[in-house]
Write a protein that binds this DNA or RNA. Structure first.
Lengths: 203, 203
DNA sequence: TTAATTTTAGACCAAATGTACTAAAAAATT
DNA sequence: AATTTTTTAGTACATTTGGTCTAAAATTAA
């Protein structure tokens, strides 16, 4: 990608994060970069194009997570590390989740993509749970749908922890991320077997 | 409150819900009501005043929840019913949570109020958990901070389940609410004792 | 070096928005 | 019935925004 295009995305990300997607105009981004708005428009024809570009960057960054995940046999530890990586990336692009509903509303294409990724993620966690049960890290469900309801909560947490942190937290970025990683991991704790808990408490 | 003011709030709520807070202007609300925008401005001087008014309505409606909660001795059942009531109210004012971060960003006063209510809610759930443990419905924590992390997840779920449903769900309103009530209740399940689980599974 | 292409800035436009001001109409009070 | 207050509509204005068009400048290719 051209350098200018990269700087545009970078500047857009900065302003989106600081002021919110709805509050930032093409012209403001251009002004921040000290280029004309028509020049910016030459590279990205509108705000939606910017968002699409930034979303692509986010997806590219997120690709590493899957790779990371399969590097160790210790399931809980693997989950912890891939969560940490994922959460860091998401925090960097936090404007995206903070204004998630606004963006989805205005961009049906991104909405569709997001739904697809969501299904992909659901499937991933479904497999993790299945594997966890199989390898004796997690207990079997106590009633039907127990783990499907769990998945639903995983989804909400994953999508919105950053938005929540923007409202409630202040302080060091790494501390915040770490706090939510722990909170996320703690979702799994009650479903772990003794074997799983041992590994968990060693983290 | 004057009838006109009520209609204004009602119309604002309708449009906020349909199109999002950031996307709706004073003039659009006035047009929807077929009054002049200067007339609307006479009653509410700007969008923030509208939001404050609607937020007050939401708080008034939410007051009943506490009353409801203390009507029964069966803790799990009481939690279920107050959750159901609370979720219905929140769904009615869902524009508020769907655009939560946007609103908080633009209205520091509402942000402060929101934080206070949050503390109040935290305290409420803290007491529920304490009572649950005391009465033998919930198990004691297995390690330090376990229930504080749980509270954090309760917060995220409570704040954002509506936003999540706006992205993922389509269908009947009551079904959606019911689904998320169940999902919320299921958060508690792994922390219940045998006594608690019996009551839970009877719901 | 010249020609072609890409990048940039500036001017311009129409639409929307928040806001302020004025005056008429409606309602309430005396 | 007269007057005071409240409610309403209309107008006007400055600002911002997304978007288009044109031409100059910069870069690249021949």
């Amino acid at each position: 990608m051209k350098k200018t295009k990269q700087i545009i995305l970078q500047t857009a990300k900065k302003l989106f994060t600081k002021h919110g997607v709805a509050e930032v105009s093409i012209r403001q981004i251009a002004a921040e970069m000290k280029i004309s708005h028509s020049n910016l428009l030459y590279h990205y024809k509108n705000k939606q194009a910017l968002l699409t570009g930034l979303h692509q960057q986010l997806l590219d960054a997120a690709l590493v997570i899957n790779r990371d995940f399969h590097q160790t046999d210790e399931l809980v530890k693997a989950l912890y590390h891939s969560t940490q990586t994922g959460f860091r990336i998401l925090y960097d692009y936090r404007f995206f989740v903070i204004d998630l509903n606004h963006i989805m509303r205005e961009n049906t294409k991104l909405h569709q993509t997001f739904l697809q990724i969501g299904k992909f993620r659901d499937q991933l966690y479904r497999e993790i749970i299945a594997k966890g049960i199989e390898k004796g890290y997690m207990r079997t469900p106590e009633y039907q749908n127990e783990y499907e309801l769990f998945l639903q909560r995983i989804r909400i947490f994953s999508d919105y922890w950053v938005a929540s942190s923007a409202i409630y937290e202040e302080g060091n970025q790494e501390d915040i991320i770490d706090k939510y990683v722990r909170s996320f991991m703690n979702m799994f704790y009650p479903y772990l077997t003794q074997k799983g808990k041992v590994e968990y408490l060693l983290l």
